[in-house]
Design a protein around this nucleic acid. Sequence first.
DNA 1: CAGCAAATTGGTAGCGCTGCCAAAAAAACC
DNA 2: GGTTTTTTTGGCAGCGCTACCAATTTGCTG
Lengths: 356, 356
Amino acid sequence: MVKTRWSSGGQAGQPPQQSGSNVTMEFKHQPTATLAEVAEAAGVGESTVSRVLRNHGSFSGKTRERVMAAVERLGYVPNRIAGTLASTGSRLVAFVIPSLSNIVFPDVLRGASAVLEENRYQAVFSVTDYDPGKEEALAAAMLAWRPAAVMLAGCEHTEGTVKMLRASGCRVVELLDLDGDALDIAVGFSNRAAGRESAAFLLKRGYRRIGYVGHDLNRDTRAGKRFSSFCETLAAHDAPLVAREILPGASSVENGRLGLERLLAQTSDLDAVYFSNDDMALGGYFHCLAEGIAIPSKLAIFGYNGLDIGRATPQPLSTIRTPRVATGQIAAQMVVANAPPQAVDLGFELIEGATA
Amino acid sequence: MVKTRWSSGGQAGQPPQQSGSNVTMEFKHQPTATLAEVAEAAGVGESTVSRVLRNHGSFSGKTRERVMAAVERLGYVPNRIAGTLASTGSRLVAFVIPSLSNIVFPDVLRGASAVLEENRYQAVFSVTDYDPGKEEALAAAMLAWRPAAVMLAGCEHTEGTVKMLRASGCRVVELLDLDGDALDIAVGFSNRAAGRESAAFLLKRGYRRIGYVGHDLNRDTRAGKRFSSFCETLAAHDAPLVAREILPGASSVENGRLGLERLLAQTSDLDAVYFSNDDMALGGYFHCLAEGIAIPSKLAIFGYNGLDIGRATPQPLSTIRTPRVATGQIAAQMVVANAPPQAVDLGFELIEGATA
DNA sequence: CAGCAAATTGGTAGCGCTGCCAAAAAAACC
DNA sequence: GGTTTTTTTGGCAGCGCTACCAATTTGCTG
């Protein structure tokens, strides 16, 4: 298991230490081949090697072969750090996302990463835990890498974050929420519209005594927006929200189950419940299955996100499907194409399902 | 929406274009303050600014204040690209993961990213789609950023990948699988042991006619290992696998449901089914709920991963809980601490649940 | 074969920062 | 006060690459 590239005391070329010794060992970077070395090995100038490797500018086929042979022989891997420093623009794209537990964000990353990889961009990320202060700190740390773009969730940011991003001169993409002023590019849909349409759907179906089960809304502002416009719509149709149960912490299936249990204990005669998202709604659904509460005749359930799992439950979940992967894709495409500032509304789709 | 930092024809300081024009516009990077500018503004030398900002070396309190004031005034953000190039080691950690759809990998990233952020490291990632060739290409692209470490899933890699990683001199961490020779550091557990224990559990419970529903095993080698040692264990106890249904493509709840449906159509008298993971198992569980198949009396279900959702279903899912977040955390800690090469077995936990 | 345009090629000045070294200033000592 | 130590500072040479420009070679034309 011990590698020869490990040595103690900074002496290169020493025989490896005994495995299992508790001496603190220092790691030595192997000297990697440089452009200059490749140039010499190929018998051409540095700039020629650079042109060949980037396939940019002109060079003869013979030169190309010589260079590639030398690259192969030396196992040369270009240094993008140096390349980025020397050239004007970087090919890093920074993601500052609230969470990785909520599948929404991996989905966005997935869409974006495919597009970025095709275009030889590199994705970098960090996680804020829904904390605006942490978002600011992480955004600053990201800017230090001089990315081509910074992608953030939503359009609520601290003053410091906004100022910093504005001053940075790099592209800024705000994802998954269009209810606010975009700094530069915004890609997503309206959470307010989602809340509104959810309410309208339940009302149309004839439900009147409607409750809500949600997770911490102060942190997840997008869930908060959906909830408030949901309530407004209900109120506007003379069927104001009857009861709510808001659990601290992140959304999860278990919290959804617990939340519905509490909501039902607290209020009787509810005929429908709106959940802050599908994870929560599935928890509610499971609670009903376990308790023998008939869905949707006795109680209707409505979620948000349109997760795949909601299509495979015995009764497909009624929900709103959001274009998460597409959001990532479009956002990445706009960065790659250096598109002008704009807001792109991808909309969402209401899935009638069988639980409402 | 149009920003003044947009201009056409490369003329800085021009009035912004009309929004909606279809002229291709070019983005101009704003000149960002440099260390030298901060030094001049503070009336000190460049190296002094560098020392203050990194809090490294010695400087007086007065100097510190002057520098920080200048930094504040100019809105200076250090350039880590330049810093990394100039110094010896980078603080980038590269993740080359098979997928973002399978919650396993976001979980690992989550654990790692928390530790890395605390230590001012930056996570970079790309997604291979379980394709070894793509893994090689992406690993090469990653090495171009000269990361402090590369983290990969599993211990099966192409020859080219291995050679390249070995030659790179950067730390290599292989995650989530200990059944093989580690290149450098390995963190995870044994998938073979997981398969074995799953089989042993089902046998202990008295199930003898056991089937399997899985997803594409050629791509997900870890699932393949679990399956093969599961089968071996069954065979060793005179209860060889009765039937299997393997679906092409990635694991998903829908595929699990479909897979079980097909398996049951093909074989009768099964008393238990082992699934390639919890997503698939949940699909199977939903199929049983929908079809009125009593669990576990008529059919037992066993999964793999120990997802939270499996604890909230009407009957808790019988499965093996894997330390995904911890894998990421430990891996990151070892990189940060520059630990010597070793394999760290985090084990797993068998959850008896109520479906088997 | 001269004469000129086009295609290739090499040299070199940075990109913004860190690390080393020596100079300068401050503190401690005789 | 004169040294010796210690602390604080600035200068500058790269890190490995790209971008620009000038030099060289090649290909054609008349």
